[in-house]
Write a protein that binds this DNA or RNA. Structure first.
Lengths: 271, 271
DNA sequence: GTTTTTATGATTGACTCCAATCATATAAAG
DNA sequence: CTTTATATGATTGGAGTCAATCATAAAAAC
């Protein structure tokens, strides 16, 4: 293997063009994706650079969150390796985390829960992975969530059947509705795109159909929405505030009231 | 959090019961699955043991390939955590590729195909991704395959419903059998663990149940097996050679005959 | 109850990794 | 072409890691 840069003058300190630097760094990221972990010395070999340069490259890539630095080497960062895990790159991650933690407190051991698609629900899955609750049966139509929770000991994870849709991460359609009928949930945790004084909004009619079907099959239905979704109105109304569901949000009750959202007593759970 | 072992007598060398050792090691493996990477010192903290013991535990787990040791710590071994990667580490990849290419030639545009779980079928999915066939409807119970084919334009990819099993890569169980009944396939492509003069073998009874159900719902059923599977006999017989199915293999007809496998005319498709 | 086994923590010396600093040669800017 | 900026490799002291060894106390075996 011949190095595209450094054909001559090995072992001497020379500045190289930025494009070579960029190419090398992207090759470095790629190498780590492939090997998942590589010690620093091997990286130096493979890239044909000194330790110092390799370290500097790693520092840059780590700052960009493209890799994860470890003592003595580096590894590919989780969300980069798996397309599905890009859901981690969320807006308002701290709000979603708070909501997820609040939801975590709601869930009792040995219960059966449905988890909808979406970044907020993915955050919940992440919390459920890191702080497992005994004996849960978890049902989802989200592939990333299923993959995240599948390996956790003590969980029984089920996927609904159906067609892959919307960036290949969720299952929808008639088959999904059919398999839904085989279930009865203690809790259903749903996401949405917006909330206004009128109610909760989503933009895809088939998502609405699906979510309404989930509502019907759960003892308690919880919509998880961060404050950023306030005042967002999309094409279709999922439910109005008179419907029987809980809202879990980081928006304060005062803020909700200010926006004209009239909720029932106990309907809002603050995160 | 209080440690179940080491309630008293901290900091002194004491032998503990084997069950505590095992419990600690499995907790260690679990911790690494959750955090993906942890430095040794943190592991010592979390487990409440000395460096020496943590090192020893890691050495054992690494030997069992349950974790991967790194300098200064350890990380979860990929194939343990994530299904799709295991499928990439295949034995006899060139044989599987040849089989996949042969299968590719069989598939007609606008047909409906079922793809089973396994490395050979994963290789087929890879070929179908790189050389798309128009208007296919693809049904699978494999998460890695669904993820691979989902993004391909022009494919309608469906997942069966069911529980995640066998290290989180496939769906099985009653729900899977139920959703199967909603389908009728032009082709079904199945994997297996072995073939002998008696027939095709697999080791999991519920996989067999599932595969037999697939057989019933397809016009043509094809078992894809590379030559390495010859003479491998596991616990349960899937089908004998009198059954109505095609075998797609890189093993030559002469080799099959030599092993006493008596096939019907046109039953074997050579890759 | 006695003996054997072994899981553990402490210690140690060799080895490795790291951040900082410096000189240098080249790319980039003027 | 000249000047500036910077990407690189070498060096170094300090910190961290590792494998091996040893004493010990509790578990296992008898």
């Amino acid at each position: 293997m011949i190095d595209s840069n450094h054909i001559i003058a090995e072992g001497d300190a020379m500045k190289v063009a930025v494009k070579y630097v960029q190419a090398r760094r992207s090759r470095l990221a790629q190498l780590l994706q492939q090997h998942r972990f590589l010690p620093l010395t091997e990286l130096c070999d493979k890239l044909g650079v000194s330790e110092a340069t390799a370290r500097r490259d790693l520092a840059v890539l780590a700052q960009e969150h493209k890799i994860t630095r470890t003592y003595g080497g580096a590894m590919s960062s989780f969300d980069q390796t798996f397309s599905s895990f890009r859901e981690r790159q969320v807006r308002a991650p701290e709000a979603k985390k708070r909501i997820a933690l609040a939801v975590h407190d709601l869930i009792k051991p040995n219960s059966t829960c449905f988890l909808d698609v979406g970044t907020t629900l993915f955050a919940l899955a992440d919390v459920l992975r890191q702080k497992p609750i005994r004996g849960l049966t978890l049902v989802t139509n989200s592939l990333p969530i299923a993959e995240m929770l599948g390996p956790v000991r003590g969980y029984a994870v089920h996927l609904l059947g159906g067609q892959l849709f919307y960036r290949q991460s969720l299952l929808l359609g008639g088959v999904a509705l059919q398999t839904l009928k085989l279930w009865k949930f203690d809790h259903a945790f749903l996401g949405a795109e917006g909330m206004t004084a009128e109610g909760i909004w989503n933009s895809q009619p088939d998502v609405i159909d699906f979510q309404l079907a989930v509502f019907k099959r759960s003892t308690q239905s919880c919509v998880c929405l961060d404050a950023q979704k306030l005042d967002t109105q999309t094409d279709y109304l999922l439910v109005d505030w008179k419907a029987n569901f809980s809202l879990i949000t980081d928006a304060t009750p005062a803020l909700l009231e200010k926006r004209g959202i009239q909720t029932k007593k106990g309907q809002v759970i603050s995160a």
